[in-house]
Each structure stands twice: as C-alpha cells, then as structure tokens.
Nucleic acid binder design. Structure first.
Lengths: 196, 196
DNA sequence: GGGTCGCTATGACGATCGTCATGGTCAACC
DNA sequence: GGTTGACCATGACGATCGTCATAGCGACCC
C-alpha cells in the first residue's frame, strides 16, 4: 500500500532511470522493454509518460547520462592525487566488480546503447558520445597532472577507455577476467613510461 | 544451377547468414527481426525453419561464426610475412572501411551479439568467444614471428582486439575516426617496442 | 469546501515479434 | 514415371512491444 514518505513520492522516476541503466547492461536497449523496467524498479506503470514524455528514447537517454556521470565521478575521485597507474585502476575497478557480481552477464550501458543506436534517435548517440568524451577528459587531465604531455595524455585516455570497454566485452564472451587483466597490465606499463 | 556441395547449403541460406551479420552490425541482435533479414537478403520467408531449425538463435550463431572466420582470414593474410605494425593495420583496416562506408552506423556483429547475450542462448556467447579467441591467436602468432615473446605476444594480441573493438564503439558514438586513429598510433608504437 | 495539480491504476490500441502449419513446386533418383 | 525430399509461398498463431486514454487518488492552495 504505497505509503508516501518524504522524498519517496518522486524517486520512482529515478528508480526507473537506474533500473534502465542496470537492465541495458545485460539485455541491451532493444532487449529491454518498458515492462522490464517497471518490474525491476517497482515503479508504477501509469506514470511512465508522465515522467518521460519522450518515451523509451528519453528514458534511455537519461539512463546513459546517469551512468556516464556516475562513472565519471569515480574516475575523478581516483585520479585526484594519484599517479598514472591509478588512472587505469580507476576505470577498470568499477567494471571488474560489475563483471564478477553479474557472473559476466553485465557490461557497460553506454556501449549497449551505442552499438544499436538507430537513426531515429540521434539523442542516444549524443548522450553516449558525451559520456565517452567526459571519461576521456577526466582521464587525460589526470595523466597531464601526472606529467604526460597534453597530446599524449589525450591519446592515452582514448586508448584506456577503448581498451577497457573492449576488454569488458571480451570478458563477457569468455566469462573470465583474463582479457581485462592482460589489458590492464599493458596499459599500466604504458602509462608509467608516458609520464616518466 | 543450385548445385549442392557437401557442407554448403543453398545460397539463399548463405545470403541470410550474411544479411544477419550485416544487420546485426547496425541494429544489434534484438533490434534485428527475422523479417528484416528476409527483406535484406531477398531470401524466401517460408524456408527459414527449414534452413535454421534452431530459429533466430541458430541464425545468429552462424552469423557470428561467419563474421569471425571472415575477419580472421583477413588478419591471417596481413600478418603473414609482415612486420609487427602490419598486425595492427590488419585488424584496423577492416573496420575503418566499415565505419566510413556506413557513415558510422555499423560496428562489429560479434560485439553486438555479445553485449546482449541472454542466458537462454549460451551458444551465442560461445560463438562470440570463439571468434575473439581466434583473432587473438592469429595476432599473437604474427607477433611471435615478428620477435615478441609468447607471453607478451598473447597480452598484446588481447590488447589490440580489445582496444580496436572499443575504439570502433567510440567512433560510432563520436561519428569520427579520431578514437581509432589515436588507438592505432599508440598500439603501433607499443608493438614496435615489443618486438625490438 | 471547492478546485487544481502531481502522480498512479487500469486497460487497451495497433504493430511487430518469433514461430510454425499447411500446401505447393521442382529437380533427383529408383 | 512414380516417389521422395529439398525448398518456397502464404497465412496465421499467441505473445509482447511502445504508446496512450481514461479515471481516480491524495496533497495542497484559495
């Protein structure tokens, strides 16, 4: 019986966004239905188009933004006052947990949305691009502070994001952390020489 | 006409497999319907479950295998008798063309299937894992022949596959080749030092 | 108390999904 | 030349998809 506590009446909207991001990681965008989001979040079904007039596309857009900001905050925290290697660890640590806890069923929601973005929803591609760009910016800034040149820091940041996202996919297929571990070993070595 | 050779099906069957791989690159697994495959391949609709008794899952499985073998052949050809950098070029060149020709709408079908593989279709994850493993093996062998140690060659091969697949995703989101170019620059430098 | 408004319950719309049954065509083989 | 079997045409099944309309709830303001 839906007792409304202070501040709880409005978080059904946020729960939907979080659940969408969660489900996208496992089933992808097309594979996740609105009814799945409702069931997982426990949010009421009747208020979907009240909170999200733009429908599924808007929900997905906000889910991507949410995931992007969430992860960026983690990177930022780990990069501040850390060395170059911790920039890699910051980006890897999060997904290592996601992979293990989901038994290699979940990946990155931003990737999931990107690889099936349709022409009729350019907002999704833009939200994903923004998330990727922010991660790279944060990592590049950290690498610069550690001593890398701006150009090199930008290239390395792109490599880190690309390699870790790719390794996450390989881990899911292989059901093992080996690809991620191998990539981390190489990336750390590379980051160490770049700031020397 | 229509001579049936052992192990080789009708060409309408093969067209369906190729079309599935093609469409998966743009719309993903769940986003691609059987009717889309029929329309794109021009194959008859009535014989779907004659050629693929396992339904959509079997079609997707064969599409992943097809893409895996196709790309592996390209890597193999470029790696034979080439230096270390050509191993990177071999893997990158293919997707550079795919991205540009599709105007950054298409990616890797193996990735598309992996990021939304369900528990009720473990064959898909296995087919994807096999494709990734074969690419890494071929690349690692090439790096070994170029002078890298077996352990290092294996790690580098994993990094190359991960980074290029990841960069492809970033390119799609960004609608630009910049991520792939940045990754290639770093990977080539890394491969050069590894075989020295 | 009357009225407004944010939010939710419920049910349904048309479309599309994967799947399959049935009937037919045509080449190949005994 | 009769039979078999691979292959295709057609239409439909139930389920589920995203979407929306309608009605009702409770809190808040006048």
């Amino acid at each position: 019986m839906n007792v409304i506590i202070a501040g709880m009446g409005t978080d059904s909207r946020e729960r939907m966004v979080r659940s969408a991001a969660y489900l996208f990681r496992e089933r992808g965008y097309s594979g996740t239905g609105f009814r799945d989001v409702i069931a997982h979040s426990g949010a009421p079904r009747g208020s979907i188009y009240h909170h999200f007039p733009g429908g599924k596309v808007q929900l997905a857009e906000e889910a991507v933004q949410y995931a992007g900001e969430f992860l960026n905050a983690g990177i930022q925290a780990a990069v501040e006052g850390g060395d170059a290697a911790s920039a890699v660890d910051a980006f890897v640590g999060w997904w290592r947990g996601v992979l293990v806890k989901s038994e290699f069923r979940a990946g990155c929601p931003v990737v999931a949305v990107t690889v099936e973005s349709h022409d009729d929803a350019p907002q999704l591609a833009k939200a994903a691009a923004d998330a990727f760009a922010r991660w790279q910016d944060t990592l590049a800034t950290g690498l610069e502070n550690a001593g890398a040149s701006p150009d090199r820091a930008a290239r390395l940041a792109t490599l880190i994001v690309s390699a870790v996202e790719g390794a996450t996919i390989l881990c899911r297929a292989e059901r093992d952390l080996r690809p991620l571990n191998a990539v981390v070993a190489e990336l750390k070595e590379l980051a160490r020489t770049a700031v020397g």
